[in-house]
């Protein structure tokens, strides 16, 4: 067997990327960013609020955390719902105690089904980021573009109708996009997505959409769910990340991506509470929502001082 000779052709071997979605830029060569109040580390807490229909969809793929047994999978359905009924309240209390604002990446179905929850989140000053329709609303190449456009519109329209504000941010399920997603989000009026994990500051696609890197490596799903670390180890790793970033020259973005059914469990929430309380009293820390971080960064990029 011999490989097709075309396997040794490299048509996009050129300076910069092998795509035109966004330009290359090295972080250490950019003008330093300073967050409001002279802070150097923007801490962006993102909470995923997810509703998993009891009948999972595999089109285009099954979301992480979705139903796993034969129908009806009461085990996983209710364990996820525990996060929405009980766990998220622990997060809200912890955020209030630490005096911090967060972004809630929210399925539209959560707002439709539990409007009192999203109303409480909004009243407390947190941001609602659109997070698809429900956990069957996955996106990847293979989903028809018209269907993807419709999914994005339904998610944004529903959240706007129920919360009174059109979300400025978008998080795809599993951060998974198709080739069309960046343009569809831009056309739908979204200001930023959170899916590309390649940086520690915001950046913009060629079409003008911004990306806030929501590093999956620093998520509770990755560290606790996949790597099976304890909550104490997770908090230690986030603290180590903060300490490192606070020591670098130029402002940085530290994302902390939390899932109620993972780290708001009774035996884990204490470590999260202590982590947030510790970081909230650090002089370099600016806790902010995605929109606040994007706006501060955009003002600085346009040459207007924020301080």
């Amino acid at each position: 067997m011999t490989l097709d000779p075309a396997y040794l052709d490299y048509p996009r071997r050129r300076h910069g990327y092998d795509h035109d979605l966004y330009p290359w830029s090295a972080l250490h060569e950019r003008a330093p960013v300073v967050w409001p109040g002279g802070k150097t580390v923007a801490i962006w807490v993102v909470v995923s609020l997810e509703w998993f229909p009891l009948v999972p969809s595999d089109t285009p793929f099954r979301a992480p955390g979705h139903m796993a047994t034969a129908y009806p999978d009461y085990r996983h359905y209710t364990a996820r719902e525990y996060g929405t009924r009980v766990g998220v309240g622990r997060f809200l209390d912890a955020f209030a105690a630490a005096g911090i604002k967060a972004s809630f990446a929210t399925n539209a179905a959560i707002a439709e089904r539990y409007p009192e929850l999203v109303a409480d989140i909004v009243v407390r000053g947190h941001e609602i980021v659109a997070h698809s329709t429900d956990m069957n609303g996955t996106i990847a190449t293979g989903l028809a573009e018209a269907d993807e456009r419709d999914l994005i519109a339904r998610a944004l329209d529903t959240l706007e109708r129920i919360t009174g504000t059109r979300p400025r941010g978008w998080l795809s399920i599993a951060r998974s996009q198709s080739w069309a997603t960046v343009d569809l989000l831009k056309a739908a009026g979204v200001d930023y997505c959170c899916d590309w994990v390649n940086d520690e500051l915001p950046w913009r696609f060629a079409n003008g959409l911004a990306n806030l890197p929501l590093n999956h490596e620093l998520s509770d799903r990755q560290v606790i769910g996949t790597c099976q670390a304890s909550a104490a180890s997770y908090a230690e790793q986030i603290t180590d990340a903060f300490d490192w970033l606070a020591g670098e020259k130029g402002g940085r973005l530290l994302p902390i991506h939390l899932t109620p059914y993972i780290s708001a469990l009774p035996y884990r929430i204490g470590a999260i509470e202590r982590l947030l309380a510790d970081l909230a009293q650090r002089p370099q820390a600016w806790f902010a929502t995605g929109s606040e971080i994007l706006d501060s960064w955009t003002r600085q990029k346009s040459g207007k001082n924020v301080a």
Partner: peptide, 23 residues
């Protein structure tokens, strides 16, 4: 593992060439 573009797979590795190589 995902249909192209595998956003997390690609952009995770891109982190090296934008940020973490120098670190």
């Amino acid at each position: 593992t995902k249909p192209h573009p595998d956003v997390v797979g690609y952009s995770h590795r891109d982190h090296a060439n934008r940020v973490s190589h120098w670190r």
